[in-house]
Design a protein around this nucleic acid. Structure first.
Length: 239
DNA sequence: AACCGTGTCAACCGCCAGATA
DNA sequence: TTATCTGGCGGTTGACACGGT
């Protein structure tokens, strides 16, 4: 399968200035027109989408590069609970943070906690991410929105309930309708989980955004178990 | 000093809905 | 009515910095 290489083309200061100038001084009606003007002035091709993204994510307003504060986190997680993944809506409630910043930070938090939680656990005990809909479950949500400073031991001693495991599994079942899962309770770990409110939403996180890919969570360092495809689990739930 | 894992930032991609021809 | 265009948005990826070993 051929893979296309995505090459990032960073914006220069001059290009930023030109884009600002075009937006602030020319009366264009569309991003397409802005893109054309940008090319005429600079000789550099930037698509309408690129211009729009650059403006919205970086140039439109002053960016807050400070570490995330507790009140910002509270707004973020509360808003996400209400609005789901409508980052543009959430961004309106957090001053000085761009939609991209917010989105990146959120995914970064989820990803970090999945990695920490899965570390040292059997494949059958791990959280497998497919979509943020798993956050609808309070138990999973609590784990995945845990603050950065929570110790490794906390994650080591935390396991999913049967119900939470089923929810995670159902994500994959929905996309593999032809396959059936033989649920076996021996396969699951159902211990009690107890959280205190201060474990969540309170952060000493620094920085603001993140790389939200989950693919590399398949490989965990110093961990004897590699992440397996869900079909593998269906074939043999006990490995 | 070199390597590796992780976090952060910026940019890109693809889908979708509304506008327009 | 339909096809095409455009912008908005959520999700994904690449590059790089930094700290720990």
């Amino acid at each position: 399968m051929a893979q296309t290489i995505r090459k990032q083309k960073l914006w220069t200061i001059e290009q930023d200035e030109l884009l600002k100038h075009i937006l602030e001084n020319q009366n264009f009606q569309s991003w397409t027109q802005i893109s054309k003007a940008f090319f005429e002035f600079s000789g550099v091709m930037r698509s309408s989408k690129q211009c729009r993204d650059r403006w919205n994510n970086n140039l439109r307003s002053e960016k807050n590069g400070n570490p995330w504060q507790e009140d910002e986190l509270k707004i973020l997680f509360d808003s996400q609970r209400i609005h789901g993944n409508q980052w543009s809506l959430i961004a309106r409630e957090i001053k000085g943070r761009s939609e991209n910043q917010i989105k990146n930070f959120f995914y970064s938090t989820i990803r970090r906690n999945i990695r920490k939680f899965n570390k040292g656990k059997l494949d059958s005990e791990r959280i497998r991410f497919k979509s943020l809909s798993i956050l609808d479950n309070e138990e999973i949500r609590n784990i995945l929105t845990t603050k950065k400073s929570v110790s490794k031991n906390y994650f080591l001693s935390t396991f999913l309930s049967e119900q939470a495991v089923k929810i995670i599994q159902s994500q994959f079942i929905q996309t593999n309708e032809n396959e059936t899962l033989q649920y076996n309770s021996n396969f699951l770990m159902p211990p009690e989980m107890k959280f205190t409110s201060e474990d969540f939403y309170i952060s000493d996180d620094s920085g603001s955004s993140s790389n939200p890919t989950f693919e590399d969570d398949k490989l965990l360092d110093d961990d004897p178990y590699t992440m397996l495809e869900f079909s593998d689990i269906l074939d043999n739930p006990f490995h």
